[in-house]
Design a binder for these strands. Structure first.
Lengths: 104, 104
DNA sequence: ACAAACCGGTTTGTGTTGCAAACCAAACCA
DNA sequence: TGGTTTGGTTTGCAACACAAACCGGTTTGT
């Protein structure tokens, strides 16, 4: 297993980001700066409840901020990455790439 | 989101392999051809129950075979990838790499 | 003016996981 | 003979993913 150093550490990746739905949300936000509920809903083909809960978890983890504004008489909820969310995402990305490359 | 095609599909990655512990198990087996219970236990720093259950799931999914032999009076359980496990692992690896590269 | 439908989410309920602790049978040890 | 180690399996529980149901407010239709 000479090339396997890192596999054990891999079992400790950030599970908050590792979830594919949350990864996709983080990825969107990292590309767009900000996005609203409906955009993410469509872009990622999720149900509303599902999206809401994943966003909750990302907020609890301090990775995204939620900003509610009134726009054209309706509430509009915008999400964006926090600096720590951005850092965590990029750490995650790097460590995934490292482990994948080792097996290549 | 021009660069985001693939994020939605990412939410459908193979969850069996996506779990970090199972990914690590698959990775070990892909490097080693075969490994036994105790080796994986140490290499990945898992508890026995945890390892056993993850192996179960990989077996149910048809990704690994379990072979029990008697060795020096004791049972020895060996695991190895099935062809379909090997294929699934390599598919997973490629699709993860693709999605990570898009964000780079 | 009143109801029906819609919008933008949130809350609730349920089945599925991940995990470690407890357990177990067989071998070895004293 | 009783206890310990080896090599796991079973059990119990907390956390989670998910969709259905719900909800306050708004627009549409009549």
């Amino acid at each position: 297993m000479a090339r396997s150093e890192g596999l054990r550490e891999h079992t400790e990746v950030d599970r908050v980001i590792h979830d594919p739905v949350r990864f996709a949300i983080m990825a969107c936000l990292s590309l767009l700066e900000s996005a609203d509920f409906l955009f993410l809903l469509q872009e990622l083909s999720l149900t509303k409840g599902n999206l809401a809960q994943h966003i909750n978890k990302l907020e609890e983890s301090g990775f995204v901020t939620v900003e509610k504004v009134i726009r054209e008489k309706r509430t509009h909820t915008m999400y964006r990455l926090t600096p720590s969310g951005r850092a965590a995402f990029s750490d995650y990305r790097r460590s995934m790439q490292r482990v994948l490359e080792k097996l290549a």
